[in-house]
Amino acid sequence: MSILARVLLPFLALLACQGDVVSPWTHTLRTNMLRESIRRLHQLQHTQVSCNEMNVTDIFADSKHGDTMELLCKAATVAREGWSCHRHLEGIYTNLLGLLRGHRLEHQAPCPVAAGSTTSLRSFLKELHQVLQEKYKNQK
């Protein structure tokens, strides 16, 4: 059997089985995405760059009662807007989209963010770090 057939067959089988079922492999992948995002956010918080004070939409302003997945979808939008400043935000954006995979918001991601109150990029990164740490702690 050729190498192409060995790779293509499992790939096609995985595509056929897509759905809302979370397999152990998917859980491990999401856990790794969370850990990697938390690590990158920690690094970003300790990196001094001029755009740390740039204004971004404050998606955390009234998120206390909101849906965590919707919050992560909006965070992906803000991360995408800021990745010209911090190259690591591109990886965080990609990981946030991966965390949304299989969720109803996946088709909208990144979610639209309404203009409203703003915060600094530094504050956004700190809040997102806390949200991801909480999500990681709750999934164990």
Rank of each mutant, 00 (worst) to 15 (best):
L9A: 07
S63T: 04
N52M: 14
F60S: 03
I3K: 12
C51Q: 08
T26M: 10
T47P: 00
L12C: 12
H46C: 03
H42D: 14
Q45K: 11
A16S: 12
M69E: 11
P24Q: 09
E36Q: 11
V21H: 13
V7T: 06
E53A: 13
V21N: 10
L41P: 07
N55Y: 02
V56Y: 00
D67E: 15
D58I: 00
Q48I: 08
T28P: 00
N32R: 09
T28S: 15
V21Y: 12
I38E: 02
V21G: 02
M69G: 00
D58K: 02
W25P: 00
R30D: 14
V78E: 03
W25S: 09
A13K: 14
S63H: 06
R35D: 14
S2E: 09
V7Y: 07
P10Y: 06
N52Y: 05
D58H: 07
D62Q: 12
H46F: 12
N55F: 03
E53F: 08
S2H: 09
I3D: 05
Q43E: 13
R35C: 03
A76F: 02
E36M: 08
T26W: 03
L8G: 00
L34I: 01
T47V: 15
L41A: 02
N32F: 08
N55L: 13
V78C: 05
C17M: 14
I59H: 01
T31A: 12
L8V: 07
H65Q: 14
K64A: 14
G19P: 00
Q43A: 12
R40H: 05
V56D: 01
R6F: 07
C73M: 08
E53H: 11
S2L: 04
N32I: 11
S50A: 13
G19C: 04
Q18H: 04
S23T: 15
G66F: 02
H46V: 03
A76P: 07
P24R: 02
M69D: 08
E70G: 06
V49G: 00
L72S: 02
P24G: 01
R30Y: 09
T68A: 12
R39F: 14
P24D: 12
H27D: 11
L9M: 03
L9V: 14
T47E: 10
S37G: 03
G19D: 03
G66A: 14
L4T: 11
L29N: 05
V7M: 13
P24C: 04
L4M: 11
P10H: 09
T57K: 05
L15F: 07
W25C: 05
S37N: 04
S2T: 15
N52W: 04
A5Q: 13
P24Y: 01
A61V: 09
M69N: 08
T26K: 14
L44V: 05
L4Y: 13
N55M: 12
T68F: 04
A5C: 04
Q45G: 15
L44D: 05
V7L: 15
E36A: 12
L9F: 06
T28V: 10
L9Q: 11
V49N: 02
H65K: 11
L72I: 11
V78P: 00
T68H: 04
